[in-house]
């Protein structure tokens, strides 16, 4: 297994009713890095992740994980959707949600048992949530919801993680905890791709960055790619406002 790339995306194109949302995106992501996907609203960041994961059907393009088609390598991939994408009033507990991360390897019909429970508790421990394992999910704060989703991805024991805005609407403590977790994943040789909004924290949190705005603007190590020219290309005229005013560009 000497594949240099954990993720290879070629010519990915997706359109809604003939309007292109992603156009001819190529990505080559090496193993063991933390990569941010950035771009203005409507640039197609979430769409990109969803197309890579096959949740949306692209018009064209191929996705390979460790050199083989995504469909064959699905067990190596974990997904952390946007926190707001589910109904947190659903009648279930934190532990139950985290155990969903084992459903894929359990396969059809089999129920989660003791082993799944232990793995889930272990993952909750890693995100500092074990004391809330039996909490009803409607009683969680935003940061706790995010940690629950992260724990669910952790129990999948994947090698590649796709996270959609993991820092959105969480407090400073949780943000810190998530960053530590990402670095721990990197230390284990895992690869993380995250949709990110905050330009200020990119050099501190991430190794690589991919800037998109329908097209791929640039992709590579932060020191090479995260330049004002590239940002201006991705964000248009708004970049001055974003880099100088201290506004973190985060959506509420």
């Amino acid at each position: 297994m000497t594949y240099t790339y954990a993720i290879e995306v070629e010519d990915l194109t997706l359109a809604y009713e003939e309007k292109p949302v992603l156009w001819d995106i190529d990505l080559h992501v090496p193993e063991g890095i933390l990569m941010a996907i950035m771009g203005p609203n409507g640039a197609g960041k979430t769409t990109l992740i969803k197309s890579i994961l096959g949740l949306l059907t692209p018009a064209a393009g191929t996705v390979r994980i460790y050199g083989r088609p995504y469909r064959e390598q699905r067990h190596l991939v974990a997904y952390v959707p946007q926190r707001g994408s589910v109904d947190w009033d659903f009648p279930t507990s934190v532990l139950d949600v985290v155990m969903m991360g084992r459903y894929g390897s359990l396969g059809w019909l089999r129920r989660p048992g003791l082993k799944e429970r232990e793995l889930a508790l272990e993952a909750l421990n890693k995100v500092d949530m074990s004391h809330l394992a039996h909490r009803q999910i409607s009683q969680l704060s935003g940061g706790q919801q995010q940690r629950t989703f992260l724990a669910r991805a952790l129990v999948q024991d994947a090698r590649v993680y796709f996270m959609d805005e993991p820092f959105q609407g969480v407090d400073a403590t949780t943000e810190r905890a998530i960053v530590d977790l990402l670095k721990e994943l990197r230390a284990q040789g895992k690869t993380v791709v995250a949709v990110h909004h905050d330009l200020q924290t990119v050099p501190e949190y991430f190794d690589w960055v991919t800037l998109i705005n329908v097209h791929r603007i640039a992709s590579g190590p932060v020191v090479e790619v995260f330049t004002e020219d590239n940002l201006r290309l991705a964000y248009g005229g708004r970049v001055g406002f974003l880099t100088h005013s201290g506004d973190d560009g985060r959506e509420r």
Binding site: K50, L55, A78, Y79, S85, V97, M100, Y103, G104, Q156
Partner: peptide
């Protein structure tokens, strides 16, 4: 609960 996540599994 989470249809997209289920698809990803």
């Amino acid at each position: 609960f989470d249809r997209n996540y289920g698809s990803s599994l």
